[in-house]
Structure formats: C-alpha cells, structure tokens
C-alpha cells in the first residue's frame, strides 16, 4: 500500500468531491426538468380526489379558508395532516353540516408514504374500517382507542380525521360568501 501523504489524501478527496458534485448536478437537472410536470400531476391527482369526495369540481383554490372549504349545500371539505409511519399523511374529509353535530361524509387520502402491503387500505376508503367511519361524529371517532393492524398508520388517520372535523367545527361559516 502506498504511503498516505497529504497529496494522496487531497487527491482522493478531490475525486470524491467531483463525483458527488456530478451526482448533485444530474439530480438538480432532472429535478428542474421534471418539476412542472410533477406539480401538474399532483394537482390533477388531488383535484380528482376532491371531485370524487365533493361530487363537484372545486371552482378555485382561493375558496379554501383555514383548510376548510364550504360547499354551501350543508357540506364542507377540510384538509388535515398527521404524522404516519413513513411521513406525513395528508387527507381530505367531507363533513355534513346539516345538524349541529357534525357527521363525517367521507374521506380521501391525498398523500402518504406508508408501507405498501400493510397500509394498502389507505387507498380504499370505501371498504373496511375506514368506511365504518362514515356518518360518525367527532365524539364517536375520538372514542376509538386503537385499530389493530398498521396501528401507527391507523392512529395517524384517526388523528387527522378528528383534526379536520375540529377544524370544521371551529369554522365560521357565515364569514364565507355563498353565491346564490
């Protein structure tokens, strides 16, 4: 083995720096080129989920106030995030505001990085225990102690749903304009 002189070390350090810089450059270039398309795809995906949930296309994003959107037909949509197993889980819920006690109308998970296989149910909110949440009030949802199977993911979903419901409860519906 050669002697490890300062020159030897600098030489190695330079090679590593150049390789790392090359990788960083390639990543930056790809990110720059794909960013507009990725953002468009994410927006389209979110819009599709919101349309599914609300049964109507949201007019503009400006009607959101404090993550709550009044649909003016005794329904409101709300967004909330909670920490799951692999990162933040973002979800959107529909809430029936017809009675004083709010009822959950449905939910869609917008973004998550949960374990595939274990947390597949996240993409299918119309079956399983997620479907059972439909029509429940905030008090009833807070009453659930734990869900077995993907415990952390399930807890994050419950926290996010309760948070979103609380957001709607605190929302001042009179403040938002409803077009006639």
């Amino acid at each position: 083995m050669r002697e490890r002189t300062l020159e030897w070390l600098l030489d190695r350090a330079l090679s590593l720096t150049v390789i790392a810089a090359g990788c960083a450059g390639l990543l930056a270039l790809t990110q720059h080129l794909t960013k507009p398309r990725i953002e468009r795809n994410l927006r389209a995906h979110e819009l599709r989920l919101v349309t599914e949930l609300a049964g109507t296309r949201p007019p503009t994003s400006t009607t959101w106030s404090n993550q709550v959107w009044d649909l003016c037909n005794n329904t409101a949509l709300a967004r909330e995030e909670a920490a799951g197993y692999g990162g933040a889980i973002a979800l959107m819920i529909a809430v029936s505001t017809a009675n004083a006690e709010l009822r959950l109308g449905g939910l869609r998970v917008i973004g998550h990085q949960e374990t595939p296989g274990l947390a597949d149910f996240i993409a299918q909110p119309e079956i399983g225990w997620l479907a059972d949440l439909k029509g429940r009030s905030l008090a009833e949802i807070k009453d659930i102690d734990a869900v077995a199977g993907a415990t952390i993911t399930s807890r994050a979903l419950l926290v996010a749903v309760s948070g979103a419901l609380a957001r709607v409860q605190a929302h001042d519906f009179a403040a938002q304009e409803c077009a006639p």
Partner: peptide, 17 residues
C-alpha cells in the same frame, strides 16, 4: 451514491411521465 442518483432520477421521471 451513483446508484442512488440514478434511482432518484428514475423516481422523478416516473412521477412526471
């Protein structure tokens, strides 16, 4: 590092296309 760079590029390209 180089494999990770190409993997991340693949992720970005798939997200875009």
């Amino acid at each position: 590092l180089i494999i990770a760079t190409f993997t991340t590029c693949a992720v970005l390209l798939m997200q875009a296309y």
